[in-house]
Design a protein around this nucleic acid. Structure first.
Lengths: 114, 114
DNA sequence: TGACTATATATCGATCATCTATATATAATG
DNA sequence: CATTATATATAGATGATCGATATATAGTCA
């Protein structure tokens, strides 16, 4: 099922931070991981992700380190900072409030107000 | 609780169509109704709504009629068309798929893949 | 070997949804 | 009579995401 990409707006940052909650990851890996975990619903584009990672790093939410990589190709790993964890918790709370509100409107009995 | 307005993106159209599912409404009323039903989470701005209504009307999803209004102030009521109902159903399905996917990523056990 | 595909990161300009600000007009309030 | 609430409308700004493009290396297959 194809979902309107505009729905994605606003939750991308939360999802990226969530991926980093338990494991450090590099950009390309995040794209694949998101796809897998969402059953191909989210196909985050490289052109979206990399600038976003740079912004989050500037904001001190994540920090990067390069693999020495004698053999492997160069990868830039990201790790969640303390601030990033805090931001993630906030975004999760927001997400809860938002979906609750939408579902309330969707499910609400259409009480036609007099 | 203030939620990031960018989360709103993509669901606004669905919410508007949902409001019209059971009752015809005019623009200003939709703003108030959305606020009420969402417990003040959604404060849709007039500058967002009116252009959106015009677009939806052009797309034949809704149609408008004016109140004769001998007394009351002029209001432009909107009614959901057949196409609009279909669109609403599609948007609901999309919404389901989207939130399911996000929650899956959020809740997913962080299986660190080898 | 050579061509092609997958991996990996990066940036620029375009697109699209929403917001802010502004405008207009009438009804209700004090 | 001034102010606020109701009601619709549009123009320009902002911000998130995408498409296109670039670069470089590793793996695959003929």
């Amino acid at each position: 099922m194809k979902i309107d990409k505009s729905l994605m707006t606003g939750s991308t940052t939360m999802l990226i931070l969530r991926l980093l909650e338990n494991t450090d990851m590099y950009g390309y890996q995040m794209i694949e991981e998101l796809e897998k975990r969402s059953q191909n619903i989210f196909t985050l584009k490289a052109g979206t992700l990399y600038p976003l990672l740079h912004t989050l790093e500037q904001q001190n939410m994540i920090e990067s380190y390069d693999t020495k990589a004698d053999s492997a190709r160069p990868r830039k790993y990201y790790r969640l900072t303390k601030d990033g964890r805090k931001m993630l918790e906030e975004k999760k709370t927001e997400w809860q409030a938002y979906t609750t509100a939408v579902n309330q409107v969707l499910g609400g009995h259409s009480y036609v107000r007099a």
